[in-house]
Simulated scan of single mutants.
Amino acid sequence: MTSSEVWDEDTATRYDASSAEMFTPDVIEPTVDFLAGLAGSGPALEFAIGTGRVGIPLAGRGVAVTGIELSEPMAAQLRQKDPGLPVVMGDMATTRVPGEYELVYLVFNTISNLRTQAEQVECFRNAARHLKPGGRFVIELWVPAIRRMPPGQSAVPMTLGDGHLVFDTYDLATQACASHHYFTEPDGTTRYSAGNFRYIWPAECDLMAQLAGLEFEARYAGWHRTPFTADSESHVSVWRKPNVQALVPPVAGIAASPGSSVQ
């Protein structure tokens, strides 16, 4: 078991409604377009598939989608909507699913649910283990909003919508982050929930990919492939598993000439 929090039945039941803005066509369609284009005719594996927000419509495009999910209540919500989509119970850092995939992906900041750097590195390695040569690993992740914090402040307002306020608190020494959610219920009462994460910088993601044997391919500000800049608040990044065979090591006592390999 990793350090990721496991979402309970109450959270899973509320998830689709509380995240309704993430289910709208203007969010889902470009996400699925992007992922379907990379998957092509090959199968895809979603880490932390949740209730199937992305996996179900991607499967609807003809992509053979399999999911890994840590929370049984979240997987139960998915099964109610699509009983035929296979979901393997386990964490995204260590759980192994049979087969090789053209695409492995993580959406909506989910890699940050792993709250140690070591586990996040293992997540990249787990993605690499599942990929075919030439396959891609894609993550969608927010850029930490630390620039918004004046000196001495530890909280940043992230969402100030009607009925839903979100404040993030940061520990700059450990890269720990907590999201504090305040919901206004129909009866006028306030419901509070919190989630704990570890934030990751884009350059740190690239180093994790290198440790997993993956090569950087592209980074965008979002699913529409808009350019990523210093002012971008999120990114969609793509790494590729090299499509090359390892060279045969030289036979002891025989030196290979520069630029050549021993056959």
Rank of each mutant, 00 (worst) to 15 (best):
S3A: 08
D10S: 13
T11S: 12
A12Y: 03
D16Q: 03
A20F: 03
E21Y: 09
F23H: 15
T24R: 15
P25G: 09
D26T: 14
T31F: 05
D33T: 11
L35Y: 01
L35G: 02
A36D: 08
G37Q: 08
A39H: 06
G40C: 04
S41F: 04
G42L: 14
A44Y: 09
F47Y: 15
R53C: 13
V54R: 12
V54F: 12
V54S: 11
G55C: 06
G55Y: 01
I56P: 00
A59W: 04
A59G: 15
R61W: 10
V63K: 00
A64P: 05
G67M: 03
S71E: 06
M74T: 04
Q77I: 10
L78F: 06
R79M: 06
K81M: 07
P83R: 03
V87I: 14
V87L: 08
M92Y: 04
M92Q: 06
A93H: 02
E100W: 00
E100C: 08
V104T: 12
Y105E: 13
L106G: 07
S112N: 15
V121C: 00
F124Q: 02
L131K: 06
K132W: 00
G135H: 05
V138F: 11
W142M: 11
P144F: 01
A155H: 14
T159G: 08
D162A: 13
L165G: 02
Y170K: 06
D171W: 01
L172D: 07
C177L: 15
S179N: 07
H180S: 08
Y182V: 14
Y182D: 06
E185G: 00
D187Q: 06
G188H: 03
N196E: 13
A203I: 03
L211E: 09
G213N: 10
A218E: 12
R219G: 09
P227H: 04
F228Q: 10
F228L: 14
T229K: 12
A230T: 12
A230L: 10
D231G: 02
V238Y: 01
W239L: 01
K241C: 00
V248H: 14
V248T: 15
P249C: 07
A252K: 11
A252V: 08
A255K: 07
A256E: 06
P258I: 11
P258F: 08
G259S: 13
G259Y: 13
S261P: 02
S261Q: 15
